[in-house]
Design a protein around this nucleic acid. Structure first.
Length: 533
RNA sequence: GGCAGCAUAGCUCAGUCGGUUAGAGCGACGGUCUCAUAAUCCGUAGGUCCCCAGUUCAAGUCUGGGUGCUGCUACCA
């Protein structure tokens, strides 16, 4: 099967990981888990971008060497990914010595192509932003619009430039020939417009910057931003013990299936990155997905406002499945979304506890009471006209879900899975197995319960990329093992009759076996009540 | 300013090629059942489909105009 390599952004280690870092990483993990279910060899790449003046300054403020600062922040990232059950295969750091080697080799290739040249960078420079500003965007007296109290400095310095302009035609042609490269589709126009207005070369080095990779051809200069950060994707592909060469990096996994990034850096991936790869004569990735940004209670998050969502806090109180589910199911990936704790709790209670958890609980309870805790043997009954539609829906579900996952439409995937679960709850009320059991209609009871168990299994299976722990526990409860490369589990009838199921919960506390974590039980009354009572 | 997109129930959103009384989930309210969790299931309320005009037998859907909001408009990531 085709290898699939996916990337999250490489996060800037200027501060602790925030929800904006967690969001694309959760999505990338879900997608990776999905491809693993299908049986694709899958590589999930994440990591950190650790160079630059901002990092250097942040470290200085804490009286730490930059590397020490980076090490600390990286630990926090990796800790959070563990808490969120992010199963990454590679964690690349741009301070990795191998990255320097890869970057130098890549640079030499581009340099040999004649795409690097020395020129002057002139303009108004905002020290706080660390960037040159366009004359027209400045406030009166050349004050920076983002830092209105600070005047910008006129700078005239030598920088190395990359000949982006040379690839104008090639990039336009590429995007014309690959209309699905940029996702979601509305973002594509923005990038095309940007290309059509004419591409200008961009500088790739800074002088007076020590925390970074020196330019191979001029060690006075340090590589700046994109020629460092983006190349981290390539370094990440090196097998752990492989010699750091481009050839080795590109052997197994290249090219990337999709880069998952925020819409704010889409251009750099859809234009700069493409040009860099073209210049280096490397194959291009298959896609870039620019996800939306998050607000909290409808308000843009920011440190100054103090209304940030702390992912550590969230996951410690509600568990990883809950956090993953909310951000993947309730927000359309690709569109901006909002987090409100009220809604978060409402959705979890409604979908996971009341709809899905309850179906599982009542189905298992009936199997325990009516079928000696074994998977019943389904036989044709007069109930088939009622059971068939549910089975038909379930049978189609794998294929429909696959399409949504492949389009990174986690919301739609989750929604259609929930549709099946809702139908099952309805089916129970329509067929009243408890009455049939009392009147000795065992064949009918068996047929109903088999339909329910298989549907629950299928829902758990297909939702497992989103809520891996929940699904694993449900599978375990059904006497099965949730594993990779098991796409045949999308079929109807995987659950073998007579399989002995695990003992049902002693109480009606579904959490006993869903094990979503215990901390939030004591910290959130509403959520707790609905699960426990 | 230029270009692009969006506007449907209190909230988040579906709505195919123009086709019957405009849908779902959540939230609210009422009822029902007892396998299950103050759950489930059923029902009710809630819509000028942003506005105006046009095309058409027929417009949430197509066309034009208007209003509002959002995004992009180059080297912070």
């Amino acid at each position: 099967m085709k290898p699939i390599a996916l990337t999250t952004p490489l996060f800037y280690v200027n501060g602790l990981p925030h929800i904006g870092s967690a969001y694309p990483t959760i999505a990338a993990d879900a997608l990776a888990r999905f491809y693993r279910l299908m049986g694709h060899p899958t590589l999930l790449v994440t990591g950190t971008d650790e160079h630059g003046q901002k990092i250097q300054r942040t470290a200085e403020q804490q009286n730490l060497p930059p590397q020490e600062h980076c090490d600390r922040v990286v630990k926090e990232f990796q800790h959070l990914w563990n808490l969120l059950d992010i199963r990454f295969d590679r964690f690349i750091r741009t301070t990795d010595p191998r990255h320097t080697v890869i970057t130098r080799e890549f640079f030499q290739r581009v340099y040999a192509k004649g795409d690097i040249y020395l020129d002057r960078q002139q303009g108004w420079y905002c020290v706080a932003c660390e960037e040159f500003k366009e004359e027209r965007e400045l406030l009166p007296d050349h004050h920076c619009p983002i830092h209105p109290t600070l005047p910008c400095e006129w700078r005239d310095e030598a920088n190395y430039f990359f000949r982006l302009s040379r690839y104008q035609e090639a990039i336009a042609t590429f995007h014309h020939d690959h209309p699905n490269f940029i996702q979601p589709e509305p973002r594509r126009n923005e990038v095309l417009q940007f290309i059509n207005q004419g591409l200008r070369d961009f500088s790739i080095s800074r002088i007076n910057l020590s925390w970074g990779i020196p330019l191979p051809i001029d060690p006075q200069h340090t590589l700046y931003v994109w020629f460092d950060a983006l190349l981290g994707y390539l370094t990440a592909l090196l097998d752990p013990d492989a010699e750091p060469t481009l050839v080795n990096a590109l052997t197994h996994w290249y090219p990337f299936h999709v880069h998952i990034i925020g819409k704010d850096i889409l251009r750099f991936h859809a234009v700069y990155w493409i040009a860099m790869l073209l210049s280096a004569d490397l194959p291009l990735p298959e896609g870039v997905f620019g996800h939306g940004l998050l607000t909290k209670d409808g308000i843009k998050m920011g440190k100054t406002l103090g209304n940030v969502i702390d992912p550590f806090d969230l996951v410690s109180r509600y568990g990883s499945d809950a956090v993953r589910y909310y951000f993947l199911k309730e927000i359309e990936f690709g569109k901006d979304g909002d987090f409100s704790e009220e809604r978060f709790i409402a959705i979890l209670n409604a979908d996971l506890a009341n709809t899905f958890g309850n179906l599982l609980n009542r189905s298992l309870g009936m199997v325990s009471k009516y079928c000696q805790q074994r998977v019943p043997t389904p036989q044709p009954t007069d109930l088939d006209p009622i059971l068939q539609p549910v089975q038909n829906l379930a049978t189609l579900l794998g294929d429909r879900t696959r399409q949504h996952y492949q389009n990174l439409n986690f919301r739609a995937a989750s929604e259609i899975i929930l549709d099946l679960v809702r139908d099952c709850n309805k089916l129970i009320d329509e067929t009243t197995p408890w009455k049939r059991f009392k009147t000795g209609q065992q064949t009918e009871v068996d047929a109903i319960l088999y339909t329910l168990l298989e549907s629950v299994r299928l829902a758990a299976y297909l939702l497992s990329p989103v809520v891996p722990n929940l699904s694993r526990e449900i599978y375990r409860q059904l006497g099965l093992n949730l594993q990779e490369s098991t796409w045949q589990h999308q079929n109807w009838g995987v659950l073998a009759p007579n399989t002995i199921l695990l003992a049902p919960p002693l109480s009606s506390n579904v959490l006993n076996y869903l094990s979503l974590g215990n901390d939030f039980l004591s910290t959130n009354t509403h959520f707790t009540e609905n699960w426990l009572l």
